[in-house]
Simulated scan of single mutants.
Amino acid sequence: MAATNIFAGLSLVLDRVSERRDQQAWIAEQATHAGARYLPLDPSGESYLLQDTEGLRWLSDAERRELFADAEVSLLGIAGERPHFLLSLHEGAPLDMLEERLGARRIGLREAGMRLGADEAGLFAYAKGLAHWQRETRYCNGCGAPLRRMSAGHRMQCTNGACARLHFPRTDAAIIAIIEHEGACLLGRQASWPEGRWSTLAGFVEPGESLEDAVRREVAEEAGVRVGEVRYHSSQPWPLPASLMVGFTGTALGRSIDLRDGELADARWFTPEQIAAGLADRSFATPTRLSVSYQLLAHWLRARAGLELDALTAGSIA
């Protein structure tokens, strides 16, 4: 069984209680629950990591009231019978002071995904995605009037009574795919990447397009390779800032490569043996473990050659 993608699997531990988000009395009761936990996120989307352990620095309700009584609060859900909230810190908050006060340091989501356990990494990603939408969605796109938060932070409504349009969190769908042809897989690299790093191809889904068609279009646009059969693999929340990565495997109709749009610096076909040899002599670097791209490559190597990517990399990648 393939490993769960980083930031994914949160439903196994968290009940988002979406059906109770409009029950204001219940929300208020959860906010003062003895076990309530608040995850502070600064305006850049960073949170706080405990100095001595690999864990997030959650605030209690008492700490939240003392330090940030005026900060916006949004319900994330219930985990382990404890309410979990997002605490959105405002511009101008004494962030450096807070690090010393909490015995913690600020941490971004990319680093957190590599350091934290699956549950906290998933909660951080969830909170960051929700906070980003809240910051970016302040005015009605219908009439321009200010919006007000509703449903414990998960919905906005236009304050113009003649409009009253509702706004919901958005996620930008993107595909990412490992394409194979007769024992080799297609990987590409961008000019800005570290030397030797290769990854699967990816791109955003366009309006009126299925996910499978997006795979075929993106691979054709970036590498000039025509793709036939496309199969779903897995997905990954990617709130950097607001995407959902949907992973696929696919089969190419041929190996001709044409870097027509200039997005990629290079694209090549690799056999499992070439990847293993490149990892051994450090001429080949995989995508970061943070990304579903790593899991797609791991799945392909295991299925086609019985090779385990974790063993091949032996801790040599970020």
Score class of each variant (00 low, 15 high):
S88N: 04
I78M: 15
D70T: 13
P94E: 07
F124A: 11
R115N: 05
G92V: 09
G122C: 06
S60I: 00
E72A: 13
D96W: 08
R106P: 09
E63V: 02
E66G: 11
A112W: 09
R101F: 08
R64V: 03
G77C: 07
E66D: 05
M114I: 06
S88H: 03
L76E: 05
W133R: 05
P83M: 10
E111D: 08
L95P: 03
E66F: 13
L87V: 11
H132P: 02
L130D: 14
W58P: 03
A93T: 14
R101D: 06
L89H: 12
G122A: 09
A62L: 04
Q134T: 13
P94R: 14
L59K: 00
A71I: 02
R57A: 14
D119W: 12
G80C: 14
L109T: 06
Y126D: 14
Y126K: 01
E66V: 15
E91D: 15
R82W: 00
H90M: 13
S74F: 06
E66S: 09
A79E: 14
D61H: 15
F85W: 08
G80D: 10
M114Q: 15
L75R: 03
P83R: 12
L123T: 07
L102G: 09
G117C: 13
K128W: 01
A62K: 00
H90P: 11
R64S: 07
L67F: 07
R105A: 04
L75G: 00
W133M: 06
G80E: 15
G129K: 00
L130N: 12
E120P: 04
L67H: 08
A131G: 04
R65Q: 07
S74H: 04
R64N: 06
F85C: 08
A127S: 14
R106W: 13
E63M: 10
A118H: 04
L89Y: 15
L89T: 11
A79R: 14
R115S: 11
D70P: 04
L109I: 09
E66T: 15
A93H: 12
A79P: 02
A69T: 03
A71D: 07
I107N: 07
G117F: 14
R65D: 01
D70W: 04
E100C: 08
L102I: 11
R64K: 11
A118L: 01
G108K: 05
E81F: 10
E120K: 07
G117T: 11
S88W: 00
R105G: 13
R82C: 06
G80F: 15
I78Y: 09
G129T: 09
M97F: 12
L76S: 06
P94Y: 02
R105W: 02
A104W: 12
A79L: 11
P83G: 00
G108L: 07
H132D: 12
L89D: 06
